[in-house]
């Protein structure tokens, strides 16, 4: 038990099992859509959790990266005549570059300067998307061309379920790999004490920047998937509330826990669907459930359960 729980790759394998099982168990494609949305959100949160849980930095602008990936996939084919796949990849690279540009000067400081800078970035991206009607369609959003990979037309929930699921597994393996590498050890050292890490010769700013860029790339990939999956994208995709939702998913599942990221995303995507029968009280109940979870399982759902299970096994 202890060994399974301690294996850094275990969450990705657990998810792989779930990804294969879900289509066999669910009664209608609606659930596959929900699962796909969970995977897409989890992809952002896994990246964000690396930043929050290991580099100890908060980003309040991840929806901006999410939206950049989404709109790049939409604008490339519509206005520049690029193939969808190429514009999606270009958007992801571009988002990485923007994150580098924002993070480079900011991450040299201690404290939560990144939170403020990303908050600003989020507002700017949101304003640009809303106002550049000729490019983005403004508040009504724009249609997104279908994705073709070779002769495979990636559309419909049956295709996107697998694309998003497999990408998430790869992203989790990547994150686990990063964490068990020397870089991961450096990140954990930074999280425990920046001063001590610096004394040990770790370039604190460089590692933080690396994680920030990786998390932005994860977010952009997820954003591109959502846009291509929905076939339509609106500025709400990049709104400030979305950023806060991502942070809530990371905190709820548990900071520093990859599996927690997936669980946090699952809870916040599925719960609103499950609560629709309560009509007006939906939001109040959702809030109450989140509060109770955070009070009872203070370190997030997965880390709290993990330490409880480990105590039980010992």
């Amino acid at each position: 038990m202890r060994r399974i729980l301690a294996n850094p790759y275990a969450p990705a394998f657990a998810l792989a099992v779930v990804v294969v099982m879900v289509p066999l168990l669910v009664p209608s494609p609606f659930y596959l859509r929900l699962a796909t949305l969970v995977f897409i959100n989890a992809l952002v949160v896994v990246g964000l959790n690396l930043l929050m849980g290991y580099a100890g930095q908060i980003s309040l602008g991840h929806a901006a990266f999410f939206a950049m990936g989404a709109y790049a996939s939409a604008i490339g084919p519509a206005h520049l005549g690029l193939p969808t796949l190429a514009s999606m990849l270009a958007g992801i690279v571009l988002t990485g570059v923007v994150a580098y540009g924002v993070g480079k000067p900011i991450l040299r400081f201690k404290g939560y300067h990144l939170a403020v800078a990303t908050l600003g970035l989020g507002v700017i991206v949101s304003i640009v998307i809303t106002n550049e009607i000729a490019w983005t369609g403004g508040p009504d959003g724009m249609q997104v061309a279908r994705l073709w990979i070779g002769s495979w037309r990636v559309s419909g929930v049956a295709n996107w379920y697998w694309v998003a699921g497999i990408t998430l597994i790869v992203a989790m393996l990547g994150a686990a790999n990063l964490l068990s590498s020397p870089t991961g050890r450096a990140l954990r050292a930074i999280h425990d004490s920046e001063v001590a890490a610096g004394v040990l010769g770790i370039d604190v700013a460089r590692y933080k920047l690396l994680v920030f860029v990786i998390s932005a790339i994860y977010a952009a990939t997820a954003g591109a998937f959502l846009a291509l999956f929905d076939g339509h994208v609106t500025p709400v995709t990049g709104g400030i509330l979305r950023s806060i939702e991502f942070v809530a998913m990371a905190v709820l599942g548990g900071l520093g826990s990859i599996l927690g990221s997936v669980l946090g995303a699952a809870v916040l995507v599925v719960l609103p669907q499950a609560l629709t029968s309560f009509h007006e009280f939906e939001h109040a109940i959702l809030g109450a459930i989140l509060m109770v979870l955070m009070i009872a399982l203070r370190r997030g759902v997965i880390p709290s359960l993990q330490s409880w299970l480990l105590r039980g096994a010992a």
């Binding site: 959003g141 994208v233 609106t234 709400v236």
Partner: peptide, 8 residues
Amino acid sequence: SDASNSRT
């Protein structure tokens, strides 16, 4: 008011 939710 979120179009992605509308789609879901």
